[in-house]
Amino acid sequence: MDALLEVHDVHLSFGGLQALDGPSLTVADGEVVGLIGPNGAGKTSLFNCINGLYRPQSGSVRVLGREVAGLPRHRIAGLGVGRTFQNLGLLASQTVLENVLAGAYHATRGGWWATVLDLPDVRRTEDRLRARALELLTELDLADVAGRPVGTLPFGTLKRIELARALVGEPRLLLVDEPANGLVHSEVAELGATLRRLATDRGAAILLVEHHMGLVTSVCDRVAVLDFGRLIAEGDPREVARDPQVVAAYLGTAA
């Protein structure tokens, strides 16, 4: 099995604060890996290093064998990296459908000339994309709100819209940051099933940041635990949850 994502000894600091202190991690095709840890552990920062929003001071991040550290951000999406944001990154002025369509940018073609000349290929791609987006919205129970501006919708719905946007680009590697936040119980179960299907049927590699341990244990093949930017445990979800160091890390912040 080839690792789709290889993170090796990544260091990232903000001034004196060491946000990432050398974690290493791999995610293979078809694998769902949970990334957990207390607040401020560096989970979102690691995501930002993978899709280029932050540039680590040292270490390497490889996607499909390509080092992403030197790549411009938009090229990283082109490698097949999809992402949802912890605090949302939707286009506030646009409708749900338009937001989802935007997610296919890197996966579709149609440059300036082709668009100006309105080549048949551009039209066909757009038609197919719209059909696919509506399909996804139906799958994620969002079809009713497809035409609504996103500004008017509740947080949990927005999280699912972001997931739909990431999925429409058919990512090889999907980074999901707290997708269950704001979802009700039944929606969490559906979300778990969606992620699992994506990994099993499409062979996508998924890295899941989540505080909802039920979701983590039910969908993840493996779990990695971050604490103060360091990887403190890795392995089977259930075993990791019992690891004394992990328990201490969580208790430490809870106290």
Partner: peptide, 26 residues
Amino acid sequence: RLARGRLGRSFVAVRDAELVAETLGV
């Protein structure tokens, strides 16, 4: 033609959320 479809969406993404646009491949 430029304002609708794939390119039009990329313009709006640049306007509304530049960093997000980059993570979408723009």
